[in-house]
């Protein structure tokens, strides 16, 4: 191989290595931006520190939605265990009892404080992890 070509190959290789290395470093230092997904049972089993932001997914328990002021309180369940949730704000259109919900927030003092609620824009939506759980039941 020509020396020039060899050099160029090394250059390209170095650029690639440096840039991908950079991205990997950023990614690992950004562990706080990764949100782990839990079902209520998994969350209660795991020891979640109050400063960890997590995603919690489950079904909204029938008859559990209580609204007061701008706050909404409800129970989210995976048909095994349930967790009380509190949320401040307007809930999405597809948020209703007996339907799937995924929330981003913090678990402290036995209550899940949801910062965001995602309800998919599809009336038949159920978090994939849950539809699997439900089949088992």
């Amino acid at each position: 191989m020509l020396q020039v070509r060899k050099n160029r190959l090394w250059k390209i290789f170095t650029i690639f290595l440096v840039s991908s290395g950079g991205v990997f470093l950023i990614l690992f230092s950004l562990n706080s931006t990764l949100d782990l997904f839990y079902t209520p049972s998994e969350m209660l089993e795991a020891d979640i520190k109050p400063e960890y932001r997590i995603k919690l997914g489950g079904m909204v328990k029938n008859g559990s939605i209580k609204r007061k002021g701008t706050a909404t309180n409800f129970l989210v369940t995976d048909f095994v265990k349930e967790v009380p949730v509190t949320f401040n704000g307007v809930t999405p259109d597809l948020f209703k009892e007996d339907s799937g919900v995924v929330m981003l927030g913090y678990y402290l003092d036995g209550i899940f404080k949801a910062e965001e609620i995602f309800a998919k824009h599809d009336e038949n939506y159920m978090p994939p992890e849950l539809s699997f759980e439900e089949e088992k039941i």
Binding site: V23, I26, L27, L30, S32, T33, L34, D35, L36, F37, K55, L104, E129
Partner: peptide
């Protein structure tokens, strides 16, 4: 086997 999601903070920082 962990389920994670990557949100806006990742992209904004990068």
């Amino acid at each position: 086997g962990d389920k994670v999601s990557i949100g806006p903070p990742y992209y904004n920082t990068i």
